[in-house]
């Protein structure tokens, strides 16, 4: 009787599915959920981690000018970088899409290189290009009669540099996602549009973009999360300097928590990303759901 019950349970598809996904669930619980709750716990402790202080760490952060500067910079960094990555990815995806199928694989492979190199390594390469004293760019500038630029020493140029490297690294991800989306747009739609007399721009606006809306939204959301939480590029290029003008949440949290020995405050800074990203995710995913419902 008991054996029969077990057999029935094992035969149920949902049970099998659950058992198959169990290792992953355990892995996520151990590596994501536990650390997430632990960091919430840390953020509610005092500096010496001896007593609970509730939301005092967040209250303290709200009184610090540097914290608000970091919030502003993180937003500028993430939004600007994602915007350019999306734009460049969209344009290049179109070029690659129009390359004859025979040579397309080569182009796809080459354009993906920045994305597959470990970012810490490629950022070191950029660091040498921007090097305060021996910048390769400056070497070139001086030879063509332009003044040398203090890439990482001037706040504005330093911001430009970290965004540039992030765009260079992340644009191939957009490219590959958009290319996949472009390939799934039915050719008949373009033919119908051509019969209706649509020009190139109108085809993009009325056919390509609407068909790619969901993939654009998801790609932007995904990239926004990753860019917002970026650490390596800023850490290697500027370490947040000069005068804190390039810090983002992750680098400032590291500075406070690990280097500054204030783990509780570091955890609070890193958790502050969560509500910002949650709001962005809710808006973007709601839009996708709405369109999904309209389509069905």
């Amino acid at each position: 009787m008991r054996r029969g019950g077990l057999r029935r349970l094992a035969r149920r598809k949902s049970t099998v599915a659950f058992l198959l996904t169990l290792p992953l669930i355990v892995l996520i619980a151990a590596l994501v959920i536990y650390p997430a709750f632990y960091s919430i716990y840390l953020s509610m402790l005092n500096k010496t981690l001896e007593r609970l202080v509730g939301l005092d760490n967040f209250r303290f952060l709200f009184t610090r000018d540097t914290f608000w500067m970091v919030v502003k910079q993180s937003c500028i960094f993430a939004i600007t970088a994602v915007l350019f990555k999306a734009l460049i990815g969209f344009c290049v995806a179109h070029f690659v899409h129009n390359v004859p199928a025979k040579g397309q694989r080569k182009w796809r492979g080459m354009l993906l290189i920045p994305w597959v190199i470990p970012p810490a390594m490629s950022t070191l390469g950029w660091f040498w290009l921007f090097d305060p004293s021996y910048s390769a760019f400056n070497w070139l500038f001086v030879r063509i009669g332009l003044p040398a630029v203090t890439w990482l020493g001037d706040p504005l140029w330093a911001r430009f540099s970290v965004i540039l490297v992030n765009v260079w690294y992340g644009a191939p991800f957009f490219l590959i996602m958009y290319l996949a989306a472009l390939k799934s747009v039915p050719e008949q739609l373009y033919e119908a549009a051509a019969i209706d007399g649509a020009n190139w721009w109108q085809k993009i606006w009325y056919v390509t973009l609407p068909m790619m809306r969901n993939i654009i939204a998801i790609t932007v959301l995904f990239s926004l999360i990753v860019t917002f939480a970026n650490f390596d590029i800023v850490r290697i290029l500027t370490a947040g300097g000069p005068i804190d003008q390039t810090h983002v949440f992750a680098t400032w949290a590291f500075l406070q928590g690990i280097e500054g020995g204030d783990l509780a405050l570091g955890a609070s800074v890193s958790l502050f990303m969560f509500p910002i990203l949650a709001v962005a995710a809710i808006f973007i995913l709601r839009d996708i759901n709405r369109r999904g419902n309209e389509a069905s």
Binding site: D131, P132, S133, Y134, T150, W151, L152, G153, A158, T238, A239, G241, P242, I243
Partner: peptide, 21 residues
């Protein structure tokens, strides 16, 4: 001093001396 000293890390000064500059 050179204008980029604000961006120097712990390796920059070493390189600056070693270069002869």
């Amino acid at each position: 001093m050179p204008p980029d000293v604000f961006a120097w890390d712990d390796a920059s000064n070493n390189k600056y001396l070693i270069s002869g500059q």
